[in-house]
Design a protein around this nucleic acid. Structure first.
Lengths: 294, 294
DNA sequence: TAGATTTTGTATAGTTTATGTACAAGTAAT
DNA sequence: ATTACTTGTACATAAACTATACAAAATCTA
């Protein structure tokens, strides 16, 4: 906390002027001491300094510098207020896409917050977050958008999804599960959605995520007393290794259920087709009632 | 024990003034003799001396020096309290470590929640989450724990950290920043901590995270009007490529500030050493005041 | 373009607060 | 008895506060 004299000396602005700016343009709001003297915070000084720099560098008048400053703050708020108007789902998807492509952390999270406030979370996952990430993933593969944009987007969306992985209630009597993509696999949205589906049913799912070495699974299965393993694959080249692993798993843990999924299985012949799960969410329900909720 | 006159002569402060300070600012509390005369302890004299030095050296008013003093004692009390619950903190670290190693999503989040309820968030980041992740990272490199355990742990800790990246308030007049690790780099905890440090100062930081291709940065810098780029490196092999990039960046964006960090720079000769940031958090403050908060 | 109006920095007046010091009247120490 | 200390009140000066005023510069208007 600084007195007006200190600030005046630091910034080279007369005290009268500082007070006049405060009164005329409401750019700062210093705290007062018991006796009513102004006490300036770092933030206040920042603002004054910025104003003065703008005036000096760009030869602006005080009023112009102030409206620049207000513009900066207003931009954020206005963006957020816009959301309350446009709230149809397609709009939300487009907005979120733009936020993510534009690397706007704050706006993206605000949009997701809005989505969660308008729709139930299952709906948000499947009809907003997943489509956006799918679109971004496709455009990334086509080279239409940059790596950084794709990483940034999936990082934010995955983060929001995984919050639900630990906040939803668990029913301890249901089986425990493990979900993962093998090494070299990075597309985890499908895996996340299915894990959330199971988590929503009350299963205790440990989400290991992408790039998990299959040879580590037996130890984990034993340690956590797992009875359901969910594996997602995008690249068909990984099927062979997975096939071998499934075989040993069936032998070592005959009671453990295995579920496979992901685009890697489309139009591929494999000995494991009985474990492969369809993409449709309605089929998930069928699978669940027949396999887990028997 | 010293009489008021002795103290006055020792410190060069009139007796009247000493009494006025005692009455007005409650900074000292000298014992009284039977007859009511003040008897000053060494501690009282130290306090007075400190106050006087502050006023002389930093040209502070008595009221300002006093509030500094009170702040100092508050800090010390906090230190002492911290010390008494240091055991508790070590306990938390151990608990969290066990939760993460045991792949217990829910318990790990509960432990982190507990940590946030006991300490301020900066403390939690630097003294609980970072040490745990560091320990797990080391044990992973030594082959003591599995890949799955390391991935799982860093996924959870990063998720908790990044929540702060978009919930802390922003000061729009401060510069905008970008933080990232280049391609092939995966250790992001240091980058995250420094990003949080800047975010905490009110800077609008876009966290791109690990594995970001450097050649995409110019477009992003233009798009988001970035004026600060933070890059972290663990592997010294990446220094050469980074050096080239820094050179072109300096040429194309002379106004953009660059900050480099990470263990990759330890004991390495490089032309970029002027941009390299020390590890110590106190040095971060120095860097900030001299570079951003000029 | 001349004159009116607005913007902006600064000045001034009358108070109030902050801070160091002075003084009076009484008590303690030696 | 003399010197030092106590409390309480008072006072002077510096620094801030509010409010109003004013002049130069910039901008608008007829």
């Amino acid at each position: 906390m600084y007195s007006i004299k200190k600030v005046s000396e630091m910034l080279g602005i007369p005290t009268v002027t500082i007070r006049a700016w405060e009164k005329r343009y409401q750019i700062i709001n210093p705290v007062r001491s018991n006796g009513g003297h102004r006490l300036y915070s770092e933030e206040d000084i920042n603002t004054l300094n910025w104003i003065k720099n703008q005036m000096d560098e760009k030869d602006l008048k005080i009023s112009e510098a102030v409206s620049l400053l207000k513009q900066k703050t207003v931009d954020r708020v206005a963006d957020v207020e816009l959301y309350t108007i446009k709230k149809e789902r397609d709009n939300l998807i487009e907005m979120l896409y733009q936020d993510l492509i534009g690397l706007n952390t704050i706006k993206a999270h605000k949009t997701i917050d809005l989505a969660f406030s308008l729709y139930n979370y299952v709906d948000v996952f499947h009809n907003i977050l997943a489509p956006v990430l799918y679109r971004i993933g496709t455009e990334w593969e086509d080279g239409k958008i940059a790596v950084a944009q794709e990483h940034f987007s999936s990082q934010i969306i995955m983060q929001r999804c995984s919050q639900f992985l630990w906040s939803l209630p668990i029913q301890p009597n249901l089986p425990k599960g493990l979900s993962l993509c093998p090494e070299g696999e990075h597309h985890q949205m499908g895996l996340m959605l299915f894990s959330l589906f199971l988590r929503n049913k009350g299963l205790d799912i440990t989400y290991l995520g992408p790039d998990t070495p299959l040879n580590e699974l037996p130890a984990i299965i034993r340690m956590k007393d797992i009875s359901l393993v969910v594996i997602s694959i995008t690249n068909p080249d990984n099927i062979e290794e997975l096939e071998a692993w499934v075989k040993t798993c069936r032998r070592d843990f005959p009671d453990v259920k295995i579920v496979l999924g992901g685009t890697g299985f489309q139009n591929q012949r494999t000995t494991m087709s009985s474990y492969v799960l369809p993409d449709k969410v309605s089929d998930w329900e069928t699978w669940y009632t027949s396999t887990i909720d028997k």
